[in-house]
């Protein structure tokens, strides 16, 4: 029978979400779409619509208010999907690590497949990361990947939210029910 899997890597459609970045990486994504780098030759379209996207390109260290949107968008994307953390602060929190309104990287909330470092990540790096993501996309199954748990019990300690204690998995809760 026809093997559809190998066509996945030929048409990756991108959803870009800025979860509190400084714009540096976002404009580099635009630059990567521009004639000099031309991401479209890999079949990339910037759809802006989670329901039709394969690659979730997240920039920024995830601020307190953007995390719900992040998870909402992630869950609206159909499988198979790949998440790319774009930029140092997206991977680890970078310079924003441990600031009071910042959640130190997206891998606390959603499973990340490719980390692209750099502040700001240059278009070459972005292309490199996306090409790497394509290989991962080919291997993915259509099984639902649940986002990791986040903001359920936002217990506060000294006015600052203690984030690490309340990171559970959403999936566990679902299985109980």
């Amino acid at each position: 029978m026809f093997n559809f899997k190998k066509y996945r890597k030929k048409s990756p459609w991108i959803l870009h979400y800025n979860a509190g970045s400084c714009n540096g990486c976002d404009i580099e994504i635009l630059a990567a779409l521009s004639p000099k780098y031309d991401l479209e030759r890999f079949g990339v379209i910037n759809t802006g619509n989670p329901k039709q996207s394969d690659i979730f390109l997240v920039t920024g260290p995830v601020t307190f208010r953007s995390r719900e949107r992040l998870v909402e968008l992630y869950t609206q994307m159909p499988e198979p999907k790949v998440v790319i953390a774009l930029g140092s602060c997206t991977c680890t929190g970078g310079v924003f690590r441990d600031m009071y309104n910042v959640e130190d990287g997206i891998d606390r909330y959603i499973p990340v497949d490719v980390y692209i470092p750099g502040c700001a990540a240059s278009p070459e790096l972005i292309i490199d990361g996306i090409v790497k993501a394509l290989d991962i996309l080919e291997q993915k199954t259509k099984k639902m990947e649940k986002p990791l748990k986040l903001f359920q019990d936002a217990s506060t300690k000294d006015g600052i939210i203690n984030k690490r204690d309340c990171a559970l998995k959403v999936g566990e809760k679902d299985e109980e029910n």
Binding site: G20, T63, S66, V95, M99, Y100
Partner: peptide, 24 residues
Amino acid sequence: VGFVHRGIEKACTTKFKYDGIGYV
């Protein structure tokens, strides 16, 4: 407009020394 609030002003007075803040 408050989605990107990261608390940089606060961090400038608690986390970083004055000579590093230029990069923050």
